[in-house]
Nucleic acid binder design. Structure first.
Length: 597
RNA sequence: GGUCUUGUAGUUCAAUGGAUAGAACAAAAGUUUCCUAAACUUUAGAUCCGGGUUCGAUUCCCGGCGGGACUACCA
């Protein structure tokens, strides 16, 4: 049982005994004691002043005395202003460490058949160009969130909706036909998504040249864009695709498959995966029926030109188009269709969309529409909205060529990790394979941690140089701490020291040791909180705090060289569990930790 | 214009309505006969402005000011 719960019960009893009043457990505010003060947990006594009718200090003293006398877990107390600082008995911490030591899951839940089913959509790329830094943030957040939700006891289905059709892919296809000489990934040695992306860029280049030429002939920009033969050709291609023209479809399939091969490699490297992939080409025609059904029910209305709209003014929003006057679907209609398809495939209790914050409005509307259409989870759908990734020199603009490519970025991170490790002599005596593994684990860990530690909602600045600085609040620092712990454990094992399944009470603990046990005990609660707040960054910050705290502990005390056997065992056991917790925490974030580095 | 979102040290990030607002980087000074110095220890440095609610506000509310996004019969 958690110490907080024991204390809360005791305090509720205490208030009743002292002041004859019942208080709800929720009224009891316990928080970690600040470093400057003596104690582990602090009770905020302000809420009880009404009951005691005494000063904050007096009330604190009274409650403290009662607890000291009646609750064995409380070893000492001091009252400062309205805060009652409680010191927990050392043996409690030893007991707690034993519990943690014995629990392989560290309090994390294991989903069962009866657990709620959460579907989480993330990544959602277009197939006309490779993944970039923005996608990296999306993928890392989505993957981490899925892990955290699962650790919270949800059945999680990870899904990806691939935007595989539309004018964008037609542009790449057209450029490939016109300028390509039949180049393939195999013939060029290029990764498929990069190859297709190159033709997308080529299209844009030729298109711009055309516009410039037409403008030189005296046309306005709008006229030039409308008349551009290249664009007209691309539109024609889209029409052919929609009509099912075999040749167009064949090329489309071929080029998309190149892209998927490329994406798969990038996903594998990033360490993300999906349980179910949806393709827009298969779902984009759906949704129309659902909208017409809504129209019949009077949820929507039709204009004279035949277009269908939803009136969202009662919700404080605008009119929203759902079907064009020619009867075709828009993005929103497709998302309704996709929702229906998914619900038919899985009994979804909750839907989470990991999509950038530029679509906040879209999801606000989608939530209302799904609710109106009778989807149980519509109202409570979560748009896990994240901010843009900017660069120190400003925003990424594909037109200006300032987009950071995901594959290039990972290459760079690994190369720098390798370089830095080599400089520090960490790779001496490693085989080629070991050195490559360390570079991969550290380089990607640096990238992942740098991105995940930031509150997702906020725009963030990704500084490639700083992220490769392995000092401070970084992934490599956490990994280093883990590797160091493993080293100690190896040495202990070599010396024949075995950590027993449970340590006896009676060892005198230092404040730092008690603090570390306290942090370990908080892990499950932090994960639970991160899950309900949809906040991977909370886990990231916890893991860093734990690593930092352990590093200080490591420097303050000898562990292997401790003469007192009992203390040595305690410190080894503590180290081992800090290591396990670092591993568990980083695993939730999708970050690997090395056994040595 | 409207809607949403954001504003914290020089910089990048923290802080369920709680104590003297925490870290890291950068700056200054130190620490390696010892389990991994990718480390540790010191020092200096911040809540955009004005109201309100509260015993208590970086946090909640209102009003300014400054970023960002959205506001397509594109996806």
């Amino acid at each position: 049982m958690k110490i907080e719960n024991i204390l809360t019960d005791a305090i509720v009893k205490c208030i009743h005994a002292l002041y004859g009043q019942e208080v709800a457990a929720g009224q009891v505010q316990l928080q970690k004691t600040k470093k400057e003060f003596e104690g582990h947990l602090t009770l905020v006594v302000f809420p009880f002043l009404r009951l005691s009718k005494k000063s904050p200090e007096q009330t604190g003293e009274e409650i403290g005395s009662y607890l000291l006398e009646n609750e064995p877990a409380v070893a000492a107390f001091n009252a400062v202003k309205g805060f009652l600082n409680l010191t927990i008995a050392s043996d409690c911490w030893i007991g707690l460490l034993n519990d943690i030591h014995a629990d392989g899951r560290y309090g994390l839940a294991t989903p069962t058949e009866a657990s709620p089913l959460v579907m989480i959509e993330y990544s959602s790329p277009n197939t006309n160009k490779p993944l970039h830094l923005g996608h990296v943030r999306n993928n890392l957040l989505g993957n981490a969130l899925a892990n955290i939700l699962e650790a919270n006891g949800n059945r999680v289905v990870k899904t990806n909706i691939v935007n595989d059709r539309g004018i964008h892919i037609c542009k790449s296809m057209l450029a490939w036909k016109k300028y390509g000489n039949g180049e393939t990934p195999a013939s060029s040695g290029k990764k498929g998504d990069h190859l297709v992306g190159d033709y997308y860029v080529a299209f844009d280049k030729h298109y711009k040249a055309e516009i410039a030429e037409l403008e030189a002939k005296g046309l306005s920009k709008e006229e030039a864009e409308a008349q551009s033969p290249l664009m007209q050709e691309a539109r024609e291609m889209l029409r052919k695709w929609e009509a099912g023209d075999p040749e167009t479809r064949e090329l489309w399939r071929t080029m998309n498959n190149w892209v998927y091969d490329g994406f798969d490699e990038t996903y594998r490297r990033l360490g993300v995966s999906f349980d179910k992939i949806y393709y827009e080409s298969e779902t984009y025609l759906k949704g129309k029926e659902k909208v017409l059904e809504g129209l019949k029910k009077g949820l929507f209305y039709q204009k004279d030109d035949g277009s269908v709209w939803a009136d969202l003014t009662p919700e404080g929003l605008d009119q929203k188009l759902l079907l064009r006057s020619d009867g075709t679907s828009v993005y929103m209609t497709q998302d309704i269709g996709t929702a229906e398809t998914r619900f038919a495939d899985y009994p979804i209790d909750k839907m989470v969309y990991v999509v950038g914050n530029e679509q906040n409005y879209h999801f606000q509307v989608l939530s209302i529409l799904l609710d109106k259409l009778g989807f149980e989870w519509g109202k409570s759908l979560v748009h896990f909205s994240y901010g843009m990734v900017e660069l120190p020199e400003g925003k990424m603009k594909s037109r200006e060529g300032t987009v950071v490519d995901a594959d290039d970025l990972m290459d760079e991170m690994e190369a720098t990790a390798k370089e830095t490790s080599a400089e520090l002599g960490k790779l001496d005596g490693c085989t080629e394979q070991e050195a490559a593994d360390i570079a991969r684990i550290v380089g990607l860990g640096a990238l992942k941690y740098f991105i995940l530690k930031v509150d997702a909602r906020k725009n963030m600045t990704f500084n490639p140089k700083e992220s490769i600085d392995f000092n401070g609040n970084t992934g490599p620092f956490i990994q280093y701490t883990y590797a160091r712990i493993q080293s100690i454990l190896r040495k202990a094992a070599e010396s024949g020291i075995a950590i027993p399944p449970a340590l006896p009470a009676g060892t005198a603990l230092t404040a730092k040791e008690e603090g570390l046990v306290q942090m370990l005990a908080d892990f499950a609660a932090i994960v639970r909180q991160a899950g309900s707040d949809y906040s991977p960054s909370a886990i990231a910050n916890y893991v860093y705090d734990l690593a930092k705290e352990y590093n200080q502990f490591y420097h303050d005390f000898s562990i292997l060289h401790e003469k007192d056997g009992q203390t040595r065992l305690f410190r080894l056991c503590l180290s081992a569990n800090v290591g396990k917790m670092l591993k568990a925490g980083t695993a939730l974030l999708g970050i690997e930790v090395p056994e040595r580095m």
